[in-house]
């Protein structure tokens, strides 16, 4: 499928297990996908489904248990420490919580300049060059110049998240993992940040892996969407397709549970019983089977097949599209 051009990011059979007292926690379990240059892949799922671990494992903030991550055709998992540091200027991350992810003792300009010095793009003594670059990046993300010497605690959530974005952008990366960048923000501020991220993507040709639990945000931003459940991919397809024709029973339940801001909107809503089971030493078979209304005996054992139900639309289910 990647004959015509090398995708910016290609992930093959990526696994990340954590050792716990009770056994192995399968946080990311055999996930494969690719993102073309300049596109956005939305990753959705509920808390504990492994979506943040996936983002971090791709950047090797967690070492993968097995599997490969190719960035512009190069195998990131085989990089040496030094080569990885170098690669990080092309692969950045924006964190979820703008209150916890900024160093409270660094000013806005120090925070933005830090990666530039670490990566050796600027000499720490080149005050003027750094200041110029910081001003440029602040303009890009819509931070007023008068804030250059303020500390994070003086700023509201929206401005703090702009600092987080500016810090990621200062190295001029090609690929950014966005880990719930707007979920801590109020809706009106959230909309400002989403517009900003869209503009930056177009201007700079960025590729995003956008992790969120907010379905309307993911639909708005993504080209493709991957739905995760307990560490595994359950459905992958083009964004509009997912909302038009959700084929995995979990996706169907997830979409139907979203409260729609229209009093006249009526649809069949699927009430899922129970909650996420533990990803520690999971039983074989489909991990959703216990809560699935269509589950039969074969769902509780063996491999769950990944079927292509329409071109580019993959579903990990024995009965995709059943309604």
């Amino acid at each position: 499928m990647a004959e015509k051009s090398v995708p910016t990011l290609q992930v093959e059979h990526l696994k990340k297990y954590f050792k716990t007292k009770k056994g192995w926690l399968h946080a990311v379990d055999d996930v494969s996908f690719s993102i073309e240059s300049g596109q956005t892949l939305g990753v959705v799922g509920e808390s504990g489904c492994g979506k943040s671990t996936l983002g971090r494992t791709i950047l090797r903030l967690h070492e993968p248990t097995s599997g490969k991550v190719y960035f512009n055709g190069e195998d990131v998992t085989a990089f040496s420490k030094a080569r990885m540091k170098q690669a990080r200027s092309d692969m950045q991350i924006i964190f979820q919580d703008p209150y916890a992810s900024l160093n409270p003792r660094m000013t806005v300009s120090q925070t933005i300049a830090y990666p530039l010095i670490i990566q050796g793009k600027y000499d720490a003594r080149d005050k003027e060059g750094i200041a110029k670059k910081v001003r440029e990046v602040m303009d890009m993300v819509g931070l007023a110049q008068r804030l250059v010497n303020t500390y994070p605690h003086e700023l509201d959530g929206g401005r703090r998240q702009r600092i987080g974005i500016a810090r990621a952008l200062s190295l001029e990366p090609k690929f950014i993992v966005c880990d719930e960048p707007v979920s801590a923000l109020d809706v009106s501020i959230q909309a400002q940040i989403l517009n900003l991220m869209q503009d930056l993507q177009q201007q700079l040709g960025l590729t995003y892996l956008f992790i969120t639990h907010n379905m309307s945000v993911v639909k708005h931003l993504s080209d493709n969407i991957m739905v995760m459940y307990l560490g595994q991919m359950v459905e992958f397809c083009e964004a509009k397709q997912l909302f038009r024709n959700p084929c995995h029973p979990y996706t169907q339940a997830l979409l139907s549970a979203i409260p729609v801001p229209d009093p006249d909107y009526k649809t069949e809503r699927i009430l899922l019983e129970g909650e996420l089971t533990s990803p520690i030493n999971p039983a074989p078979g489909c991990r959703f089977a216990k809560r699935c209304r269509y589950a039969t005996e074969q769902c509780f054992g063996g491999e769950t097949p990944v079927k292509e139900v329409e071109p580019g639309h993959f579903v990990a289910c024995h009965f995709p599209g059943k309604r």
Binding site: Q190, V217, H220, D262
Partner: peptide
């Protein structure tokens, strides 16, 4: 507020915050 939420039923290119 209504302009700030991305719609699930319609396709909007840009939000109006």
């Amino acid at each position: 507020l209504f302009g700030s939420i991305p719609s699930l039923s319609e396709d909007t290119d840009r939000l109006t915050p």
